[in-house]
Design a protein around this nucleic acid. Structure first.
Length: 306
DNA sequence: AAGGACTCCAACCGCTGATTT
DNA sequence: GAAATCAGCGGTTGGAGTCCT
């Protein structure tokens, strides 16, 4: 019956990951791709449970993760998506491919919540809508409020996307017609980047006791940069659409040699894909003017997204 | 300078739906 | 179809770092 047990709790290590463990995990994933987490501890010899390995990968080691301060656009986007989607951090994170759900959640809890509270106690700005005021309102009011939220969110998304478009959406579209040779290299490099980041932090730690571990993400790695490889940011934003990524060529050994593993690429692409949907939603003029039920539209789109 | 309060974030915990046997 | 586990998610916590008095 059922599967074999994942990992017994006895002998499973907990707490912060060491650089050695990170390197082992990254090396394994570079070779086998993410997935089948159950097998990871056994195959790598890591004394971690599969869940811990998966979390470490998705929240920290995964290529293309941007660390450091959130930009105004990101902040805006999070605020409005939170108003729209609630605390569905994974869903929100899908609109910010470079950020993890954990990061967004932390940022929300530590920064934005306070910021909004401040605004709430002060003047009622647009940001107060939907965050805390869904309670104790009738269904009709709630729907109207939701519509307002959607409009507000759309507006913010428009702003954010229009600012980021040159790098983000347009490039993804452009790359779908032409080839983007840097993509494969850079995604690989971004993993290398993470590893060298780890090593860098490790070295620093050994020379400077008490310094935090390898998470000083703001320091770009020398190895990746010196080789002229694009940043992780670029690599994510310039990904090709799935049909190109998973075309017949990609299965050849040559094509896959320096590229991400299929699942990993798929994961990165899936994280990016909703932007196109949002984009088309934003560009669909008939929606904003109420000819169509905004609520229906939003729900339809949302079901398509998630 | 000391130490208490506060902040931040990586990692853990527990739950749920999906998947496998 | 049932049971057991997996994978993913959101909430919470622990501890290191920073700020304040």
């Amino acid at each position: 019956m059922g599967r074999l047990p994942c990992c017994d709790k006895v002998g499973v290590k907990k707490g912060p990951w060491t650089p050695e463990e990170d390197i082992i995990l990254v090396s394994y994933i570079q070779e086998h791709g993410p997935g089948n987490w159950r097998a990871v501890p056994a195959k790598t010899g890591l004394l971690r449970c599969s869940k811990s390995c998966r979390l470490r990968w998705t929240n920290y080691l995964r290529p293309g993760i941007k660390r450091g301060n959130f930009t105004d656009q990101e902040e805006k986007l999070i605020i409005h998506l939170q108003a729209l989607l609630g605390n569905r951090w994974a869903a929100i994170a899908s609109y910010l491919p470079e950020r993890t759900d954990n990061d967004i959640k932390n940022y929300w809890n530590t920064h934005l919540k306070k910021k909004l509270k401040k605004l709430e106690t002060g003047a009622d700005g647009l940001t107060t809508s939907g965050v805390s005021s869904h309670q104790s309102i009738s269904k009709g009011q709630w729907e109207r409020r939701l519509q307002t939220d959607i409009n507000t969110a759309k507006q913010a998304l428009c702003e954010a996307l229009s600012l980021e478009k040159p790098n983000c959406l347009s490039s993804s579209k452009a790359s779908s017609s032409g080839s983007n040779s840097s993509t494969r290299l850079s995604t690989y490099a971004s993993s290398t980047e993470n590893i060298s980041r780890l090593l860098e932090g490790w070295m620093r730690k050994s020379t400077r006791p008490g310094a935090c571990q390898a998470n000083s993400g703001s320091t770009q790695t020398d190895s990746a940069c010196s080789q002229g490889t694009p940043s992780a940011t670029n690599c994510i934003l310039s990904l090709e659409p799935p049909e190109l990524l998973f075309g017949p060529d990609s299965s050849t050994p040559e094509a896959s040699e320096t590229s991400l593993q299929g699942e990993e690429r798929k994961l990165v692409w899936e994280a990016q894909e909703p932007l196109s949907l949002i984009e088309s939603w934003l560009l669909d003029e008939s929606v904003g003017q109420g000819q169509l039920s905004l609520l229906d539209m939003a729900l339809d789109d949302a079901s398509g997204l998630f």
